[in-house]
Computed example of a mutant assay.
Amino acid sequence: MADTRTPIRIPILPWYSDHHFGGRVILAGVEAMQLLAVAAHAAHPGVDVRTMADGRFAKLLELPAGASSIDALVETEDGENGTIRTRLLTRVRGKVMTRLVSHCEVRFAATSVAALHMNPLPPAPAAESSVSIDAARIYEELVPFGPSFRSLQDRLYLSAEAAWGTLQAAAPGASAAQPLGSPFPLDGAMHAACVHGQRIVDFVPFPVEFTSRHVFRPTVAGERYRAQALLKQWREGELIYDLSLVDEAGHLRETVSGLLMRDVSQGLIKPPAWVKTLGPRGQTARNG
């Protein structure tokens, strides 16, 4: 089946300005996936958009200052075995011609999320022996987002292989249910992976791809969750994590497998030196 491209207008909500990178306001990847899920369900009501694979954040989508919305396209295509491939596109005008740029790509799988096996999380590390960082300092110096996207709470605990922390799902004026749940907890779990990665590489790791995502039960604005970012592979120039979100009752809410993180700043943004020298309970000089 040929690709179907549907024009959409993305409203630029007030809290989007809190998500910025390199001085530019950027549409969060979790918001882009939400847009694609809505479009996929509208085009194919039978597809379970909570099961997805082959995610790719191809190019950052900058949101223009002062604009109330931005025009885009959602491309959908029937894939093999009942899957739906989707892409979020914008038109970029050049000197000679207009071209389409892909910002986010996701394949929604045919397997219902209810049929998937849920593995329990390993226990969190002991606070007494773990390196930890106060969430306020994370958002001041390591992941400098505004208040709406400061999902990590209290302290983030880190071992050589993983990061564990508490998340608060923000509720900045939005009450409508979304097919993938609140976007803020998963975004915060990515922050945990970013912080963990800054301790072991000389760049700020940014999510660019993932192998699969499963939303077992959508997260809800206003609720608290526990997040785990588990390092699966570390090779030159990139890190790969598995992410898990659990609610306060201990139920697994969603997972991301094979989250690939790279430097998207071309070496311009570096981790501060102090993050690599933290001792237990975050003991280091403020400017060390």
Rank of each mutant, 00 (worst) to 15 (best):
M1I: 12
D3R: 12
P7L: 13
I8W: 02
R9I: 11
I10D: 03
Y16S: 08
S17F: 05
S17G: 11
G22I: 08
I26F: 04
A28F: 12
A40E: 02
H41G: 04
H41Q: 14
G46W: 11
R56H: 15
E62A: 11
A65I: 13
S69K: 13
D71R: 11
A72C: 14
A72P: 03
T76S: 06
E77I: 02
G79T: 08
I84A: 07
T86R: 02
T86F: 01
L89A: 12
G94Y: 03
V96K: 15
R99D: 05
L100P: 01
L100K: 14
H103Q: 11
C104T: 11
C104W: 01
C104K: 01
V106G: 03
S112V: 03
H117L: 09
M118F: 07
L121T: 09
P122T: 12
A127Y: 01
V131Q: 01
V131T: 09
A136H: 00
R137V: 00
I138F: 06
Y139D: 03
E140R: 13
E140V: 06
E141W: 08
L142F: 10
V143K: 06
P144Q: 13
G146T: 07
F149G: 05
Q153T: 01
L156R: 00
Y157L: 03
A160L: 08
A160R: 15
A163N: 07
L167T: 00
G173L: 14
L180A: 03
I200M: 14
F203H: 04
V204C: 05
S212M: 07
H214F: 08
F216Q: 02
F216D: 00
A229F: 10
W234E: 15
W234G: 14
L239K: 02
I240W: 13
L243M: 08
S244N: 09
G250L: 06
H251Q: 15
R253Q: 10
E254T: 03
E254H: 11
V256E: 03
S257M: 01
L259I: 05
S265V: 04
I269R: 09
P271W: 02
W274R: 10
